Amino acid sequence: MYITITAQKLGGNYSSGSGDFVDYLEKENQDLDQDGGEYFFNQYDDKITAEEVVREIDANTAKLEKTEPRFYSITLSPSKYELNRLQNSSEDLKKYTREVMKDYVASFNREINDRPVSIDDIKYYAKIEHQRTFKGTDKQVRENQPFASKILQLKSDIQKVERGEISGNIARMEREIQKLEKTAPHQQNGERIVQGMPKEGNQSHVHIIVSRKDASNRFSLSPGSKYKASKVELNGKTVKRGFDRDKFFGKAEKTFDKNFGYQRNFVETYNARKEFIRNPKSYFSALMKLPTSEKAMAMRILKQTGMPIMPSIPTSQAQLALKVFNRLRKGLDIAVKSSSIGI
């Protein structure tokens, strides 16, 4: 389960309101009829319109400074293995989202009216999407890029030949383009994978927009707090503050496993991905100690996520750690983006 928490973007292409972001979440519905699209939902209601979401989020911003985000975006992205455990992607993900938001409020070190934050204290709306497209940062697009560049150059040369600017054999260049299209390392349904191409298979995931202010529009609840748990004096009163992301991510995984009977592999856990970033040597050492079947599954998962692994596994733990550590120094940025764990 890959989970990200992102603050609203201020400036640039984003306004101080939520309209642009909600419009973005409606993109998948644009090509569907009214009955075929997905509505927004929250903890209790299933068919919430985009207009209501914008109205409710934008009206819930009392006393926020212009430089403070009005809302946060949470994305829940199950892996293909997790999606295979679902009986009905939409209904199961809706159920899971409602349970995850209970984990979300439980991760705040805050009190409202002298009690812990509850699910009824937050204002959120969620939207399920079933499609994804390849991005420029995806491994498949990056490794196909040299072929894409050569194809683009050949097409440009063909146009120049047709305009009489240079001499060349157009038929030969077209054959070279066809060869490059077929030999690019990453293909989908017989076509070279390019940025913007829809990904095949089940791509269901959830986008959540949650207001910075609580439902009463009085208290600020920021999951972007740099504090996990602390206290501060405010107007002569001791106030708790903080949000524990580690707790939230861990509980979200356990909630999925419990609800859908999922047996989580070591490399799929938040704690393992965090260890990979902080101490690759320890991470791979723990990986090599897994039972044979679990280790084999771990290697398949790592290969699919684009995280750097060795083509063969040395028998020596020390040899493994040394080789992996050296390779990870070059590939760490890619792995961090693949893990999407928001730390």
Rank of each mutant, 00 (worst) to 15 (best):
T6S: 14
K9S: 10
S16E: 08
D33F: 05
D35L: 13
Q43M: 02
A59G: 06
T61C: 10
E65M: 08
T67Q: 03
E68H: 06
S77I: 07
N88S: 03
S89T: 12
K94R: 15
T97Q: 14
N109S: 10
E111R: 15
I112R: 11
P116L: 02
S118V: 00
S118E: 04
I119P: 12
Y124D: 05
Y124C: 06
T133P: 04
Q140D: 07
V141G: 02
L152M: 02
D157F: 04
R163E: 14
G168Y: 01
N169I: 14
N169A: 05
R172A: 13
M173Q: 10
R175D: 15
L180F: 13
K182S: 11
A184D: 08
G201K: 01
H205M: 04
I208Q: 01
I209T: 05
D214N: 03
S222D: 01
K226Y: 04
K228W: 14
A229S: 09
A229N: 12
K237W: 07
K237A: 09
R245S: 07
G261V: 12
V267Q: 15
N271H: 09
A272I: 11
R273M: 13
K274C: 15
F276S: 11
T292S: 07
M299K: 07
L302I: 09
K303Q: 05
K303P: 02
K303E: 05
I313A: 07
A335E: 01
S338M: 01
